[in-house]
């Protein structure tokens, strides 16, 4: 058998080499962006805006019963694509994959319930907020937890890759954090008493509290939770275009309408708008 394979060896090596050479053809052209060229031009030229969005985060971005993308951020991404006069393509991202996908060039921007942090700023760039959520706590009724200060030494559930863990620790360094893959798992753990509280944006928590009488949202949010668009470093033209589009969406009432449609009720805060800045 040995001499048999010895002679076959060169053919084997050739076959392996051929397949290895064929693999790179599976790549995409999404990152075909020359140095110094703005994503703004790339998007207009392509005729499609590729946005990294959440498909698992109601009411910001999720999939409805017909399998369609819906949500506050999905409609806002459509608004941005309309302003550009291009089609919208949505790529699903998670807390962990959104930044690598932007940096690698899989997407033109991140619109995925993302907060700006110094840490993330080292890798990507942000616009100003298009929305302000607030980080809050969800607890069982009668838990004795009435503010973020009360979770010292208590178990608080958050989701991996999100910024919520740091938010909790900034206000209560003694909290014991427990990480989950998804919010429903944290919710289940809370209801089973395996954690004492869970923490994320108040929109998500309010929905959980509305659906279950034994759960209650603790007070007003302890930390503002600005939602920003993510763009690649050194692309001011694209970032400022998005910035202006955010202001347009505030001044023409789009954000207010989308809030009423997806979150329900009237928005209770304002984001300052100074469109003149961009027209000068």
């Amino acid at each position: 058998m040995n001499t048999f394979f010895k002679k076959y060896a060169s053919a084997t090596a050739l076959a392996l080499g051929l397949v290895a050479a064929a693999l790179p053809s599976l790549s995409t052209d999404a990152a075909a962006q020359g140095p110094g060229e703005s994503t703004l031009d790339v998007v207009k030229e392509r005729g499609t805006l590729i946005a990294g969005a959440r498909n698992d985060f109601p009411p910001a971005g999720y999939i409805d019963r017909n399998g369609e993308w819906v949500g506050f951020e999905i409609d806002f991404a459509k608004y941005i694509a309309d302003k550009l006069g291009v089609k919208l393509e949505l790529i699903p991202v998670t807390s962990r994959t959104r930044i690598p996908m932007l940096v690698n060039g899989n997407v033109d921007m991140i619109i995925a319930v993302m907060n700006p942090t110094v840490e993330r700023g080292k890798v990507i760039d942000f616009t100003d907020p298009y929305f302000l959520g607030g980080q809050a706590l969800l607890v069982e009724k009668g838990s004795g937890i009435n503010s973020i200060a009360d979770v010292g030494g208590k178990k608080v559930g958050t989701v991996q890759g999100s910024n919520d863990a740091k938010g909790v620790l900034a206000f209560q360094p003694d909290a014991e954090l427990v990480y989950f893959q998804e919010y429903p798992q944290a919710l289940l753990a809370l209801k089973q008493g395996r954690i004492d509280a869970m923490s994320t944006t108040d929109l998500t928590l309010r929905k959980f509290a509305d659906a279950d009488d034994s759960l209650v949202l603790v007070g007003p949010p302890f930390k503002p939770d600005p939602w920003v668009l993510g763009v690649r470093h050194d692309d001011s033209e694209w970032r400022l275009f998005l910035q202006k589009t955010i202001m347009d969406a505030w001044s023409d009432g789009t954000i207010r309408d989308l809030y009423a449609k997806h979150m329900g009720g009237t928005i209770n805060f304002e984001i300052p708008v100074w469109p003149e800045y961009y027209s000068k």
Binding site: L23, S27, T28, I91, P100, N104, G105
Partner: peptide, 14 residues
């Protein structure tokens, strides 16, 4: 994380 360094952006599926 490795593939983009070798061949540029690839969809998650690839």
């Amino acid at each position: 994380f490795l593939l983009p360094h070798l061949v540029g952006a690839v969809p998650a599926y690839t």
